[in-house]
Design a protein around this nucleic acid. Structure first.
Length: 504
RNA sequence: GGCCCUAUCGUCUAGAGGUUAGGACGCUGGAUUCUCAUUCCAGCAACCGGGGUUCGAUUCCCCGUAGGGCUACCA
């Protein structure tokens, strides 16, 4: 078999979302598995829906996820280009490969040429119908309960009239739908058959000189020698149109595989309404790319083993398109969170420090302290942002009630005694010996049998919270000086307190 | 409305013509424990319905039902 060449063909109409990432991942994994080429082509043929940041956002999302683009639109040059102008962004796009340009808006001459070829062959024809007439036609068909289809009003116009009108009127080029049926063997769903009579004489070239998706995708996939097309299942019903175009040109037809879409929790299409769904949003919220990739890879694909945690590399090795699922999965945030916490646990502390740093931009925490924070909260965090939100109490002692300090039915007198014991124990540790191991060792020795009596009040004094890491970790996190200060504060709070018999 | 796709625990899924229908997330309970989290152990929980085919179907076929997609000079 000739070389495997696959592509994603995003249209820059919004931020790169989870579904797009999964399509990209599938194509990428298939390419890696078959030592093929992974291509990015931008389908910017709809001039009315362009979103300037879409291209840089997509490229950043792919890079962040670890997906390397071999050919096509591979990057955006750094610089002062105006992010609000699509034309400016286009100028800074970096393209690589011998089949370019890889932006459809730069290939207009090519589409025109091939469209003319179809007209010459009698397989396409110009149509002068106005939008109003078409709409009226559709309305009429709707009330008659008929399938909305172009009525071929312009199919058999007189050649000289056509020539004249083409010079003076806007027109589109339509494909002349042949009789018969079309079938293809979908890589994930098997054989699919369509009757051509249910298909419309769809538009190939719009009156603004741009091709439609259906036309451009076929011309480009052929010219770029695409061998396999993995795309979303919303394209299934368009596939016969594409196949008919390949046949009209006499071109070989690539293999198609239609991937499931990711649904929201109630089974609808995942969209912005369901919260953040763009890849950059997940990045902002502190999810690890490894977690997102792992989660998304197992949504609609299964290795047929019990393994759940996969690195990108393992996915590359294990991927098999025959194991792609047919039924659309739902997005489950709790499952994502589990993957996320698993991947955080798997990271080295040094790596986590580097990754979590940006989330502490609003604080004055030093690297040495960040170090401690990571080691204490690593087991507790589900995403990077948690490191920041969990350490609130380290930066500022929360305002807590003295009642919280009471361990079971301890008396106020004994409680103060307990806190004093902790104070003394910590105070006796030399500053240079003040590390987690030493702190724990001495406090546990001091606590004796009834640990809670010493440890609960201490932990509350240090954290100001009902729930927190252990008192040893808190004392270590805060440092000797701050710890002593907080214990002292708790004792004062009790002494000045109004209640004698408070209970927690 | 027409055409197309899909259907196993709440969720992600494995599975075979005959299985105690397996795993994971979540949930519940327990162990560890100063709290929370982690970790470990245990438990709850599914073959959409109806017809066929068959000695036997959750598995194969058909029909329903439900969900999704397409039905634009959008992709």
């Amino acid at each position: 078999m000739s070389q495997v060449r696959v592509r994603i063909a995003p249209s820059p109409t919004g931020l790169f979302h989870l579904g797009s990432l999964r399509t990209a991942l599938t194509n990428y994994l298939f390419a890696r598995k078959h030592k093929g080429v992974f291509i990015v082509r931008v389908e910017d043929t709809d001039q009315t829906r362009l979103v300037p940041v879409a291209i840089p956002d997509m490229l950043q999302s792919l890079e962040w996820s670890g997906i390397k683009v071999d050919e096509g639109v591979v990057g955006v040059r750094e610089g002062s280009s105006d992010l609000s102008s699509y034309e400016e962004i286009k100028k800074s796009v970096v393209q690589k490969g011998n089949f370019g340009p890889y932006l459809q808006s730069e290939r207009l001459d090519i589409y025109r040429k091939y469209a003319e070829e179809l007209v010459r062959k009698g397989l396409a024809y110009p149509c002068f119908c106005s939008a109003e007439r078409l709409e009226e036609l559709r309305n009429r068909q709707a009330t008659d309960k008929k399938a909305p289809k172009y009525d071929r009003h312009c199919l058999n116009l007189d050649p000289t009239e056509i020539k004249k009108r083409m010079e003076n009127e806007p027109f589109v080029l339509r494909f002349k739908m042949p009789d018969g049926s079309s079938e293809f063997n979908d890589l994930v769903r098997g054989k699919i058959v369509f009757e051509n009579k249910n298909l419309d004489d769809f538009v190939l070239m719009k009156s603004d000189g741009f091709p439609t998706y259906h036309f451009a995708v076929v011309v480009d996939d052929h010219l770029m020698e695409i061998s396999h097309v993995f795309r979303g299942e919303e394209w299934i019903s368009s596939t016969p149109k594409h196949i008919l175009l390949y046949e009209a040109f006499g071109w070989p037809v690539p293999a198609f595989g239609h991937l499931t879409n990711i649904l929201n929790t109630v089974g609808g299409k995942l969209s912005k309404r369901d919260g953040d769904v763009s890849v950059s949003d997940f990045k902002k919220r502190g999810y690890l790319p490894e977690a997102i990739v792992n989660f998304i890879a197992l949504l609609g694909w299964n290795p047929k083993s019990d393994q759940e945690i996969f690195s990108l590399k393992e996915l590359e090795e294990n991927f098999d398109d025959k194991k792609l699922n047919k039924a659309a999965p739902r997005f489950d945030r709790r499952r994502l969170d589990w993957f996320s916490s698993q991947h955080i646990k798997a990271k080295s502390e040094a790596e986590l420090i580097r990754l979590a740093k940006p989330f502490f931009a609003d604080t004055k925490i030093e690297e040495a302290n960040l170090n401690k924070i990571i080691s204490v909260f690593k087991e507790r965090a589900t995403c990077l942002a948690d490191f920041r939100s969990e350490v609130g109490f380290v930066l500022d002692l929360p305002n807590y009630s003295a009642e919280l300090l009471y361990w079971k039915d301890i008396t106020k007198e004994d409680l103060i005694k307990s806190l004093n014991e902790s104070l003394e124990t910590l105070n006796n540790i030399e500053k240079k010996e003040y590390d987690l191991k030493r702190i724990e060792e001495l406090l546990i020795a001091k606590a004796g049998e009834n640990r809670g009596r010493l440890l609960w009040p201490l932990r509350v004094a240090l954290s100001g919270q009902e729930k927190s890491p252990s008192p040893f970790e808190c004392a270590w996190l805060l440092g000797k000086e701050e710890s002593l200060k907080r214990i002292d504060f708790a004792i004062k709070k009790l002494r000045n307190g109004e209640k004698d018999t408070a209970k927690k």
